[in-house]
C-alpha cells in the first residue's frame, strides 16, 4: 500500500520535559492506525504534533510525498488533513448545519455547493434531522458525530480521530465502530488515538503503543496485546 502519511523521529519537548521521544509512524490509504498507551504516554501530544497543533522539537513529516514539517495546522487541513478534538469543540453559537458549512467552505466557494456537501456529510453521520439545532444543545454522542462531520466536510485524505469512542454507551459505540470502518472503504486513511481496546482491536490494521513518550511496541492488534512490555506498561500505571 502506498504511504499517505509518514512521520519520522518525532520529538516534542515542553520545557525540559520530553513528552514524545523519537517516534515514527506511517499510514497507507484505506488503512487504520491505532495509537494506544496509558494516560500521559504522549498520544495526544504526538497527535497534535502530526496535525500541526503542537510545535515539534525535531522530526520530519511527509504527506503524499510532500514535506509538511513546520506547516501551520490550517495549511495541513487544506492539503487533506481532517481531525476531531478529544473534548468536542463545536462552534457553539452556530447551528449544526452551520458548523459543518464552515468546514465545507474549504473546498468550495459557493454557498449552494457548500450546503450540498454539508447536508450529505450530515446524512452520512446521521445528524441530518438535527441540521438547524444549535450545536450547544447536542448530547455527547451527537457532539461526537458533529466533530466527525466537520472533519469529513473538509474532504480529507487522512482523518485523525482523538478518542472519539470514549464515553459512548454500547450501542453508540457499535455504531461508531461501524462508521469508522466505512470511512476506509472510501480510501480514507485513519489515525486514531483510543482508549477503548474493543475498538482498537476490531478496527486497526496496525497499532503503535506509546509509554512515557516512547514507542514500546508496534504490530497487529493481536501482536501488541500479547506483548509483555505492553502489558507491563498498562499494569504498571494502573
Amino acid at each position: 500500500m502506498p504511504n499517505v502519511l509518514r512521520a519520522d523521529g518525532i520529538t516534542v519537548k515542553f520545557g525540559g520535559l520530553t513528552a514524545v521521544n523519537d517516534v515514527s509512524l506511517s499510514l497507507g490509504s484505506g488503512e487504520i492506525l491505532g495509537l494506544i498507551g496509558p494516560n500521559g504516554a504522549g498520544k495526544t501530544t504526538l497527535f497534535n504534533a502530526v496535525t500541526g497543533f503542537a510545535p515539534m522539537h525535531s522530526g520530519r513529516i511527509t504527506f503524499l510525498d510532500q514535506d509538511i514539517t513546520g506547516l501551520p495546522a490550517f495549511k495541513r487541513t487544506r492539503l487533506g488533513f481532517g481531525r476531531t478534538f478529544q473534548t468536542e469543540r463545536p462552534f457553539e453559537e452556530l447551528t449544526v448545519l452551520e458548523n459543518v458549512l464552515v468546514a465545507a467552505f474549504l473546498t468550495v466557494g459557493r454557498r449552494s455547493e457548500a450546503e450540498r456537501i454539508a447536508r450529505s456529510v450530515l446524512e452520512q453521520v446521521g445528524l441530518a434531522d438535527r441540521a438547524h439545532q444549535p450545536a450547544l444543545d447536542l448530547n455527547l454522542a451527537r457532539r461526537r458525530r458533529l466533530e466527525l462531520a466537520k472533519a469529513l466536510a473538509v474532504k480529507p485524505k487522512v482523518i485523525f480521530l482523538d478518542e472519539i469512542m470514549a464515553g459512548l454507551n454500547p450501542p453508540a459505540l457499535r455504531e461508531m465502530i461501524a462508521f469508522v470502518r466505512s470511512l476506509t472503504a472510501q480510501g480514507l486513511a485513519v489515525l486514531m488515538v483510543e482508549h477503548i481496546m474493543e475498538a482498537i482491536i476490531e478496527l486497526s490494521d496496525h497499532v503503535i503503543v506509546l509509554a512515557s513518550g516512547e514507542k514500546i511496541a508496534e504490530g497487529t492488534p493481536h501482536q501488541v496485546t500479547s506483548d509483555e512490555r505492553v502489558i507491563e506498561a498498562y499494569l504498571g500505571t494502573d
Binding site: F74, F105, L106
Partner: peptide, 23 residues
C-alpha cells in the same frame, strides 16, 4: 458567504477553525 462563516468560526474557537482549514 464563506467569509462570514470564517469570521464566526474564528470567534467561536480558533483551533477548531484551523482544523477547518481557516487561517
Amino acid at each position: 458567504a464563506r467569509f462570514g462563516f470564517q469570521l464566526r468560526a474564528v470567534r467561536e474557537d480558533e483551533d477548531s477553525a484551523m482544523a477547518a482549514g481557516i487561517d
